[in-house]
Design a protein around this nucleic acid. Structure first.
Length: 241
DNA sequence: CCAGACGTTGTT
DNA sequence: GTCTGG
DNA sequence: CCAGACGTTGTT
DNA sequence: GTCTGG
């Protein structure tokens, strides 16, 4: 991931297997303009609270937790408009969890899935951040992840999925100095059908107190046909969500 | 115009 | 701060 | 799901 | 008839 993002700050960042809203997440942002000849990286890593707080919020305690933003509407929403223009970020992860909620009548149980790139490695989600100034003068960096309608593969599980930004689009996504929202709308689209694989996992993941690698151990879900996951092991560097 | 909301998803 | 609903 | 709206203007 | 708001 360090190689992918060009960040220096990632050494020694431990793997995390169950990141819940309000917890810190690592994001990549564009660094301030470089001096000519500088070899400083043009991106930097920031830890933000997962749950965006717009700058105009009076009392964060009474404000809804904004962990996702719909990419179709974020440009026009008061809560996301400024961040969409000025504070786009990349959120690196080794995948995400999603829950399949069967119709109540079906009798099927809620099934959790660990969803990761088929090729393994790191995926970068499109996200937004804000720096919130509280009344006591302290700053709180917060962020959220953009979503888009699920592709056919993921829609078996859920109707939405995170926006995936490909490496060749990182620079354009992050360049908020020149790139306006209309210049990046094309990047907010469902991932290719074969980009992700969904691995059924146990309901251990449902409890945020469970945080170990065993959360990603494949299970065979009871009734429906579901291809068991491979046992290809993860690189263990950065297991977000 | 003015007052009030400002969001998503449904357990990540 | 900006948008929406009345 | 059901009830209610279904339109525009917004300084005349 | 269809959409929206609760």
């Amino acid at each position: 991931m360090r190689e992918i993002l060009g960040l220096m700050e990632l050494e020694g960042f431990p793997p995390r297997y169950n990141i819940a809203p309000t917890q810190p997440i690592l994001v990549a942002v564009a660094a301030p303009p470089l001096d000519p000849g500088s070899n400083r990286p043009d991106r930097m890593a920031v830890l933000v609270r997962w749950g965006l707080i717009p700058s105009w919020v009076k009392d964060p305690r009474e404000f809804t937790l904004l962990i996702n933003a719909r990419s179709e509407t974020a440009i026009d929403k008061a809560s996301f408009r400024a961040a969409m223009r000025h504070r786009r970020v990349l959120v690196p992860a080794s995948g995400f969890y999603e829950w399949h909620r069967p119709p109540k009548e079906s009798g099927e149980k809620l099934q959790a899935y660990w969803i990761r790139p088929k090729r393994g490695g790191i995926v970068c989600f499109g996200g937004l951040m804000e720096t919130y100034m509280s009344k006591d003068g302290s700053e709180l960096d917060t962020g959220c992840i953009l979503t888009v309608g699920a592709n056919r593969t993921i829609s078996e599980i859920h109707d939405r999925m995170p926006v995936v930004i490909e490496p060749q689009d990182f620079a354009r996504w992050l360049d908020c100095r020149h790139g306006e929202p209309r210049d990046i709308v094309d990047l907010m689209r469902p991932a290719d059908e074969d980009y992700f694989e969904a691995i059924p996992v146990s309901d251990l993941v449902n409890k945020v107190a469970n945080v170990g690698a065993e959360l990603q151990t494949p299970v065979i879900p009871p009734p429906k046909k579901q291809k068991p996951a491979t046992d290809r092991s993860d690189d263990g560097q950065m297991n977000l969500f």
